[in-house]
Design a protein around this nucleic acid. Structure first.
Lengths: 340, 340
DNA sequence: GCTTTTTTGACTAGCGCTGTCATAATGCTA
DNA sequence: TAGCATTATGACAGCGCTAGTCAAAAAAGC
């Protein structure tokens, strides 16, 4: 029933210690003994007891995913990506949704790591952008990888996976301009998410480059939610000089804007173009479908986890970090295509 | 730094074993020693080491959630509900998405439990409806709770949380009939999910009760997906004698039907009423918003976990199971309200 | 064939906790 | 208040594994 390291050792005709060496990828094991052991492992379907391992080595084989994000699609994608990497490397994933705005958040994260003996943490916005968390983790020597908005790797951004929101937003905006729009508006996401700021910056840069003036009233603060999109669009559509194109900070906001436009009997894309960001499933399910930028969350998450594993294995080399950069690609759909 | 049970014992002036007793809510600890220990625990912020506990007791403090469901909102709600219960009882949650249709699924689940030393499993459709899984778990003596479609508690459905899809569907259909519709259609979900069958049964029962004939061609097989809704609606709208109301098996299908109707220039709800099921966030985000049935997934999940904990604590009493029944409530919105 | 290097094994000592069972403290009865 | 039944507490072994130390064995090098 329960297979222990002993059984494997016996079957392979080697000592416990050797099996242990194999299981922990220690060097100085000959190829043929390694094969013998692996064969026995496979035959017995041996799975080392994580608890015992953990206890004996004070290493752990699980990582944590801390998040506070109302976007179900985002979370699921992230989770699946992390899980994929975890399975590959024999780790477990502990999910920890929490409230980013609670006062004891740093303490909470620290306790989580300690209590569950985590090997490391994957942080998404807004946690990945909270310096107090990074500092606390650094101090305690806890490994972590942040998924963060940015385009240029740098030392300060060690252990980060970057998502180049700026460039993606720049391209979306260009697309809007290419459609002949000149009165553009921007619906922001939560301001504590730097992605919102980056996307806005990309938007502005594109306008500037084309020499198109931006009415500052057309930048509407908001949150990453459908409701925020509805309200933001309401404000915009109430303006005397209505914009003809809206760039929403994510698909949910865009869907809200679409909803509002429909309420106001405005046709999309003829009277108003709307673009979103993220390429979440419902950007395909609105009517008309949304132009957006494809943010490969699952892949991003997988990379983040891989980085974390790499880090915790050679935790001595701190500066040698890769910093993958993802640039979400433009996806054009009917919500902006008035040329069709 | 690292607080062990030893430190607590010393500070409280008792033996390690007594602290252990307190931590495990064992009886026969006097009130005053209990207080002393609790004080020490609080002062040191002691958190028992799960790995050591696990190893020593061969009990485990984590449960698994096995799922295969493309519906992000559903998963997130379930997860959050489970997590809530887990936190309350000091358990951890291990999530395990997988493919229900893979051939080795029973084996996979069994291995999962063994490898991760799980205290039990929460199963949602379609896993909760696979007899081979229930049998395998029973044989191995593994605790589990199923979330399943049904209205009447029974011995066969021990360790189940029931969702009364039949009654909810009956009510939705009644609502449709109350709006004056007589040509109704039904868009099914995956047939391996019994919820689809139950909802269809409720639908049919309501029609029968009112003496309204149902055109069998108006029952369209499908899956729980947006695309399926689009395709299903396409078929219905191509019929010579179009239905005037569609009951979709869930909100996603309904959204797909809505999408299709829009493509066909059909106005909702004037020319066609559409109802969904589940009350997921986007039932509020379509245009017009969807009439649906509110399925309290988070609460359901919490209950399921609570049941599981109860079961694993007193695993000797098998028949004494509660079987909570949830009846999703009708939520009327614009997609069916042609009286307004 | 002999030395050097690389692999392997036997053994030991925990990791932090729980289970068992013996012992001590307390409560109860007469 | 002795004498017994209870209840509360503690000593100790051990869960399955890792890690370190050496020593023995095997392979490689000259």
């Amino acid at each position: 029933m329960k297979v222990t390291i002993n059984d494997v050792a016996k079957l392979a005709g080697v000592s416990i210690k050797t099996v242990s060496r194999v299981m922990n990828n220690e060097p100085s094991v000959r190829q043929d003994t390694l094969d013998k052991v692996m064969a026995a492992v496979k035959q017995l379907q041996y799975q080392p007891n994580a608890a015992a391992r953990n206890l004996a080595s004070s290493k752990s084989y699980s990582i944590g995913y801390v998040y506070d994000n109302p976007n179900a699609y985002y979370i699921i994608d992230m989770q699946n990506g992390l899980l994929e990497a975890c399975r590959k490397h024999g780790y477990e994933l502990l999910i920890h949704p929490t409230n980013a705005k609670s006062s004891g958040i740093v303490q909470e994260v620290l306790e989580l790591v300690e209590r569950s003996r985590l090997a490391g943490l994957v942080l998404t916005p807004p946690f990945s952008e909270m310096p107090e968390i990074a500092t606390a983790l650094d101090t305690k020597g806890i490994d972590y990888v942040r998924i963060i908005s940015g385009s240029t790797p740098s030392a300060k951004l060690k252990n980060c996976v970057l998502v180049d929101d700026f460039t993606a937003a720049f391209r979306i905006t260009n697309h809007l301009l290419d459609q002949g729009h000149s009165k553009l508006a921007f619906l922001c996401g939560d301001e504590e998410h730097s992605s919102s700021g980056e996307r806005l910056a990309g938007f502005q840069a594109a306008l500037t480059k084309r020499g198109i003036a931006l009415n500052q009233d057309c930048i509407i603060p908001g949150t990453y939610s459908f409701e925020s999109g509805v309200q933001g669009a309401q404000k915009l559509l109430a303006m005397a000089d209505k914009p003809t194109a809206i760039f929403a900070c994510n698909d949910e906001i865009a869907a809200g804007a679409l909803f509002c436009a429909r309420l106001s009997q405005i046709t999309i894309p003829e009277q108003l173009a709307i673009a979103g960001f993220e390429n979440s499933p419902f950007s395909r399910q609105t009517w008309p479908p949304l132009t957006t930028a494809n943010q490969p969350n699952k892949t991003i998450a997988r990379q983040a986890a891989e980085l974390l594993f790499k880090a915790s294995k050679q935790s001595s080399k701190p500066s040698n970090f890769e910093q993958p950069v993802f640039v979400p690609e433009l996806v054009v759909r009917e919500s902006t295509r008035n040329d069709l």
